[in-house]
Design a protein around this nucleic acid. Structure first.
Lengths: 240, 240
DNA sequence: TGTTGGCGGATTGTCGACAATTTCTCCCCT
DNA sequence: AGGGGAGAAATTGTCGACAATCCGCCAACA
């Protein structure tokens, strides 16, 4: 099960592998909670364990992966609280980003945004859920890049990846995101340089996406008993 | 040169070592640009290289450390642009945090905040710069904790550490931060639960701190020639 | 005198072997 | 048939040795 086929035989940089895994998460090719064993990853990226371990540490730091000592790495499973926190963080970060971007976007960038929004709409229309989620992420990240603040961009990168997980976990499959119109409206505000309006639209858009989800924790499962009582196991989800 | 003396001989967790190093940065015991060789760190924390390497990766991911392939780890040296970006990110993040905290802080937490603010003022009054910077960080982080959003708290943790570096790099030693009054005013607004006012005060406070600094890049140095032309070296500050 | 080139020491990067832990499987017993 | 437990297999964690690279030093030369 090669995660991604690998034509170029040049050694992958750590960053490249991180990006590929993040991309797989954003495209919903890796579901929340999936195990990421080291050996298959080594094979998929044709590298050895020490590199994969480095990569997993980075992904854990970004909140995309959870490490359980002695049990391995898993794609993160944000609980309801974390999901809400991620959205709140996005509102904070993207508000600032969109205000900066409104003052800096040139025509070419605007056109590119429009294209991305339209493509996202098309993907959605034809029911290509994973592509639609991915393009929505790209849309937001493009704005961030235009904003010119690398620190905020990096924050948003992580948040977008985690948002994909959250949508995968809590998205009722009935609810269409219908974000195309909101994206288009946002671009329109950006085009006129109306910062306040852009900020408002962004905040509403994110609130809207969040509201379309059904964010609540599932009832206690068998596996949870382990964390309810003190763990006889050394490392686990709770305090290490 | 023991970085930190080490009484308890229990093995340190990765997180503990990370925290200690971050603390050292925040207390200005580790200056921006300082080299962090693996061997001394291993000795200081009585652990072996693989653990230290993991820790350095985490610190790099947080923006506190910069890794130069084959050359080692260095405490980060944010340039002028990054410094401004960090402050902008703080305004975005802390605006949201303070709004959340205003609705949640109880009396005990308020009192604790007051204490921290006062202690910070005292440290400043007696010229204890490093303690004053540290306590200012603690003040902001306490508010974040009260805000109840772990995602934003984590962002802020990183930003606060980087801010310490920035102050160390760009702080004219003449300018006193005099943040005590601003902190007190902020607490007052939080106490009355006035979210808008708290947000405004926080934004002004951060803008004020930034303005007290002299954020600009030093003139080109000899070392820069390396980055002006393509690097003959494999890994460096530029694209790897 | 200032620059270039090379050598030795030191530091970082990589890899493989081994230890520790978990997970799976099968068998036994009730 | 189901639960429990022992053993086996697989996976992760740790450590040390070796290779690759860089830095500082010193000599040679223009």
């Amino acid at each position: 099960m090669a995660l991604i086929d690998d034509d170029l035989r040049q050694p992958h940089s750590d960053a490249a592998i991180v990006d590929r895994i993040v991309a797989a998460v954003m495209e919903q090719k890796l579901a929340a909670g999936a195990k990421l064993p080291e050996a298959p990853l080594c094979e998929a990226f044709d590298c050895n364990r020490s590199q994969i371990r480095r990569v997993l540490i980075v992904l854990a730091e970004r909140g995309v992966v959870t490490l359980h000592p002695n049990r391995g790495a898993f794609v993160a499973r944000p609980d309801a609280e974390e999901a809400r926190n991620v959205f709140e963080a996005r509102r904070a970060v993207e508000r600032s980003i969109v205000i900066a971007a409104a003052a800096r976007l040139d025509e070419a960038a605007i056109a590119q945004l429009r294209d991305t929004a339209r493509e996202g709409g098309e993907a959605e229309a034809r029911g290509d859920r994973s592509e639609s989620i991915r393009l929505s992420g790209v849309f937001h990240l493009r704005i961030a890049e235009a904003g010119g603040n690398a620190v905020l961009s990096k924050f948003l990168e992580d948040l977008v990846a985690r948002t994909s997980l959250i949508i995968g976990l809590y998205g009722s499959r009935v609810a269409r995101s219908c974000s195309e119109e909101e994206h288009e409206a946002l671009v329109a505000a950006l085009e006129t340089g109306d910062r306040e309006r852009a900020a408002l639209l962004m905040e509403r858009h994110l609130a809207h996406v969040e509201r379309l989800l059904d964010i609540r924790d599932a009832g206690p499962t068998a596996a949870d008993i382990r964390s309810v009582f003190g763990a006889p196991r050394k490392g686990g989800p709770e305090t290490p």
